[in-house]
Simulated assay, not measured.
Amino acid sequence: MLVKVLFQQIASVCMAMLVLLSTVSWTVDKHLCMGRVMDISLFTEADDCDMEKAMVAMGNETMDNHCCDDESFTISGQDDLKLTLTDLELEQQVFLFAFTHTFLNPTASLEEHCVPHQGYPPPLITRDIHLLDQVFLI
C-alpha cells in the first residue's frame, strides 16, 4: 500500500512538472566575445564582457565593437490548455472513467468470500470407488 501511495505522489509531481515545463516560454541568451561564449542567461539578457568600457577607456569611442555578438533563441510554450471533459467523445470519456476507476480502486469489487470448510481436512480415501464399481471415463 505504501508503494502505491509513493508511486501516485511521484507520478503526480512528474505530471505537474511536465505541464509547467510545456507551458512556460523559454528564452536563452548568449554573449559571444571573439567566438567564445562568455555568458549564458535563461529568461533574461546575458551580461556583456565589458569590451565597450575597455574601448572607451582606450579612447576608441567611435570604433564599433566587431568582436562581440549576442545570440538568443526562444522556445514558445503552449497557450491552448483549455481541454475539458466535454471535448472528448463518448467512447473516450467511458474509457477514461473506467481506467481511472480501476487504477485508483483495483480491489474494490473483490470481496472476501467465507469458506466454511477451510479449517477441516479432506476425507481420507480408503478405497478407490472407480475401480470397485468399474466406472471409467472413455
Rank of each mutant, 00 (worst) to 15 (best):
K82D: 14
L83I: 03
T84V: 06
G77F: 06
I75Y: 13
D64S: 12
F43G: 02
N60P: 00
N65H: 10
T84A: 02
K82N: 15
S76D: 14
F97L: 13
Q93T: 01
S76L: 13
A98T: 03
A98V: 02
K82P: 14
I40A: 06
T74N: 09
A46W: 00
Q78L: 13
K53T: 14
G77S: 06
D69P: 00
F97A: 14
I75G: 03
M63Y: 14
A98R: 03
D87W: 01
L81R: 02
F99R: 04
D70R: 08
A46V: 04
S76P: 06
M55Q: 05
E52C: 11
M58S: 15
E91C: 11
F97E: 04
S72A: 10
M63N: 14
F95W: 10
F73T: 05
E71G: 10
D48A: 05
D48G: 02
T44F: 11
Q92N: 12
D50R: 07
L81M: 08
D87G: 05
A57I: 13
V56T: 12
N65G: 07
C67M: 15
V94R: 11
L83E: 02
C49G: 01
K53N: 12
L83M: 09
V94Y: 12
F43S: 11
H66G: 05
K82S: 14
F97K: 05
L42W: 08
F43R: 10
A57S: 13
D39W: 01
D50S: 09
V56S: 11
F99Y: 06
S76I: 06
Q92D: 10
D80C: 13
M51E: 08
I40F: 04
M38H: 10
L81S: 06
D47E: 14
E52M: 11
D47K: 09
A54D: 01
K82L: 09
A46E: 00
D39P: 00
F43V: 04
S72K: 13
M58C: 14
M58N: 13
C49R: 00
M51V: 15
E45K: 05
G77D: 05
D70F: 08
H66T: 13
S41D: 04
R36A: 14
E52N: 05
S76E: 14
T44I: 12
L90D: 15
Q93E: 01
D87T: 05
V37L: 06
S76K: 07
L96N: 06
A98D: 08
E71I: 15
T74V: 10
L42S: 05
C67R: 10
D48K: 00
L83T: 03
A54V: 14
Q78R: 13
G77N: 04
L96P: 01
L88P: 07
V56K: 04
A54Q: 09
L81Y: 03
F95V: 07
Q93F: 00
L85K: 00
V56A: 14
D87K: 04
C67K: 11
A98N: 08
L90H: 10
D79K: 09
